[in-house]
């Protein structure tokens, strides 16, 4: 028997890094998590074993936006009449280079994963919330890069800027149906995609913020959990920077 009061969350990029941290946090808080990524990592499998019956996984590749949306919403993973309470869009890829070297194919690939797929998944998440009359909550993970320029990250930052604008529009458009949309902009964290940074660059970034340290993924995950909770019922169209004071 499924507990009717347990809330259902769709989470992208749950296999590692920040997504894994968010997944653990949501499971601990009692949510049922529908996790997607290209691989089922050992860590995610362990989370599933520790929270039996509340973690569901599907292998989905966001570089094919239509295929991904169909895999999530048009089969038996999240059927239409299965009420979704929240969508946390965390998966992303980073393609780093200076602007004079832009490679169109890499650019397009990154936009598919970071922008088109999150938009299409939002489309179907909203349709699900509308059908089931749920006051759902959407959270997109952005990045401090969208607000502060970093050498080599202009194209990646542009995907985050796009998703922040999309979230503001979504919030305005769907607020009348009780659906909220917010973004969280983490600063540099010592996990995931940032581990490719050189020690020197990481140090420079740390020195630029007020707290003089890397952002804690747990703090980012707590912020996400708060934004999808009832405690945030009056918050929409916002961006929350969890960046140790980088601006």
């Amino acid at each position: 028997m499924q507990n009717k009061t347990t809330k259902n969350v769709l989470l992208s990029g749950a296999s590692k890094g920040l997504g894994l941290c968010i997944c653990g946090k949501l499971l601990k808080s009692g949510y049922r998590v529908y996790a997607i990524s290209r691989t089922l990592s050992g860590h995610l499998r362990e989370l599933g074993e520790a929270h039996k019956g509340r973690l569901f996984f599907k292998e989905v590749d966001l570089s094919d936006p239509i295929g991904a949306a169909n895999a999530v919403f048009k089969g038996d993973f999240i059927p239409r009449a299965f009420p979704l309470d929240a969508f946390v869009s965390n998966a992303a890829q980073s393609y780093e280079d200076i602007v004079s070297n832009i490679d169109e194919a890499k650019l397009e690939g990154m936009f598919k994963v970071n922008v088109f797929s999150p938009m299409l998944l939002t489309k179907y998440a909203i349709r699900n919330m509308l059908l089931n009359r749920r006051p759902g909550s959407i959270v997109h993970i952005s990045s401090i890069c969208a607000h502060t320029g970093y050498k080599g990250l202009s194209m990646y930052a542009a995907t985050k800027g796009a998703i922040e604008s999309f979230s503001i529009g979504t919030a305005r458009e769907w607020g009348r149906r009780g659906i909220r949309s917010n973004t969280v902009s983490p600063g540099f964290m010592e996990i995931g995609m940032a581990t490719s940074l050189s020690d020197e660059d990481a140090d420079k970034i740390r020195r630029r913020n007020s707290l003089k340290k890397a952002a804690d993924p747990e703090s980012v995950a707590d912020t996400v959990a708060f934004l999808i909770s009832d405690g945030a019922s009056s918050i929409t169209g916002q961006n929350v920077c969890v960046d140790c004071g980088s601006r």
Partner: peptide, 13 residues
């Protein structure tokens, strides 16, 4: 348009 969107998802369902 919002009522129509609701109509659409209900007819689809």
């Amino acid at each position: 348009s919002f009522d129509l969107a609701e109509l659409e998802v209900n007819i689809e369902d």
